[in-house]
Write a protein that binds this DNA or RNA. Sequence first.
DNA 1: TTGTAGGCGTTATCAA
DNA 2: TTGATAACGCCTACAA
Lengths: 341, 341
Amino acid sequence: MATDKPTIDKVASLAKVSKTTISRYLNGRFEFMSDETRKRIRAVIEELDYRPNNLARGLKSNRSGLIGVLVADIGSPFSSILVKGVGDTCKDRGYQTIIANTDNDPQKEREYIRSLIDNRVEGLIVNITGQNDDFLLELKDEGIPIVVADRPMETLSLDTVTSNNAEMTYRTIRHLYEQGFERVAFITQQISQVRTRYVRHQTFLKACRELYGVDGEKWVYFIDPSDVGSLAQELQAFLEMEDGPAAAFAVNGVTLLSLVKAIRELDLVMPDDLGVTGYDDWGWASLIPPGITTISQPSYNVGVQSALRLIQRIKDNRPKPKLIELPSELIVRGSSVRNVK
Amino acid sequence: MATDKPTIDKVASLAKVSKTTISRYLNGRFEFMSDETRKRIRAVIEELDYRPNNLARGLKSNRSGLIGVLVADIGSPFSSILVKGVGDTCKDRGYQTIIANTDNDPQKEREYIRSLIDNRVEGLIVNITGQNDDFLLELKDEGIPIVVADRPMETLSLDTVTSNNAEMTYRTIRHLYEQGFERVAFITQQISQVRTRYVRHQTFLKACRELYGVDGEKWVYFIDPSDVGSLAQELQAFLEMEDGPAAAFAVNGVTLLSLVKAIRELDLVMPDDLGVTGYDDWGWASLIPPGITTISQPSYNVGVQSALRLIQRIKDNRPKPKLIELPSELIVRGSSVRNVK
DNA sequence: TTGTAGGCGTTATCAA
DNA sequence: TTGATAACGCCTACAA
């Protein structure tokens, strides 16, 4: 740095008071301060454009003003909008967010968490990979405030903010059923340990049993979203399996995108050849004729609520873990509506 | 925190050496350290799961290991992918990124920058709003390493990583011209002070002069992307203005999305009623029949290069500012290809 | 090869 | 109403 930043000592000497008084001023404790000194201090601070050093503050006070956020994939709209919700909320309350991207890699997740803690973040908002539960619980036991965003832990032993996955999945399958589709392909990435995928998968099976009276497993397709060709093949096979109106449900936005690509590759017409539904309304779903039926998640609000809960917990870490489930919205469009009778 | 974290003192006492030695160990200066003490220290550190406090480190050494990143809108794929590029690159080199979202608001931009500096970030990567040039230059003069990502400053007085906007815009208009479109609407948000918008706008005008021999201003439409209805009206007016094949160019991804929505609202057929091109290939452009012609920007790489340049500059802040222009790609799809002769 | 001591910029506890 | 002074956890001359 060319020009060295002014420190509290410099302010003190120019204002002709001790640094204790400056510190009081900085922390808004004017109770016993004469108006005169207060004004003098303010003048000096403005003059120097003095700003306290947060590292020093944090070191002394154990309050860094930093909140760590881990997301699985910042490149996906879900994560980035969630991050925005967190950021806006934290800013308003005097916190800065440090964001790290785990790429769904449990090892990266651990490394980043360690590093965030080294930077003395006051709390953590985690979109978990699902493979570090024990590690997270240790941290909790060490007293670090943690909120789990979007993907719950199986045990729910941490504060969790998510959306009503089971309900919406069921409702969507029922919608397809009521529209007269006679079978539904469930298109998903490997479940890995991702709890939302798991819940959606299980709910799908349940809906198949209760509505179609079948074991849904035969309609489940595990795919790699980047390999549209294979997906197209699988889809073809699904369609040829039986006659009658068929539909598909994509487990998340990335998968839905692949699904629509595969449909285009096969030159299928929605909903006649295949009814289409799935997770994540990312702006383009309405544009693809005849409009894709999607479940729109409250990502921004998940971010906001996670941040609020975390900040609460930073102030008082005693409360029992709480589960907050925010509602998603099923947006029905042409791709799942059969106009034939 | 329930269990207090171990400090360097604790490690020192358990390892029966002074904290100087521990500090040496932590910083990898084993040159004059006996193998035995080294092992002993390692054992104690593992045993305690000791990790140094970054705040204390940064306070003393003036190296926080933090890099600040400001983006205009983290919710847009452009920003979030850029952020990912920055994050990946920084992580590999031992830096953490603090990300802040300015919402294109110059005041927020200033506030965030101040706050990042309070946290002693070692450098800044900024997707500038374009209205804080003086402020940024002051910071530069104070010795803070800064890289401008995507949106250049008019004066180029800072390191800049961006893409070849002028070239790609010109090439796209020429493509439309060569396809026999007789006029081109330029759909844009308010330029504000956003340099990329400005450059694209100016290039459009230039292309109009050189190719069509007209003043392109009459074909420029300033729109609010969230107001699809108005855009549809304007588009209608543009189409009715004259006969002959007409096309449109959207200045960025957000605008392109609105444009396509408006086209759907008006029930226009691409490319017969309107040829469509524009910035940002965000995954869905290929899905909308007949496929939308887009310019795909190297966002990830802009992030990577920005980070690399910044880290270089953190090490040596003397070099003259450099402009790095990365190539974008024009992806021609059905929306701009006239198959009639 | 290792240790002593002082300081980084704050905050907090006393005492005045 | 204000000020000395001692931390916070680490790094680094300098000394041994």
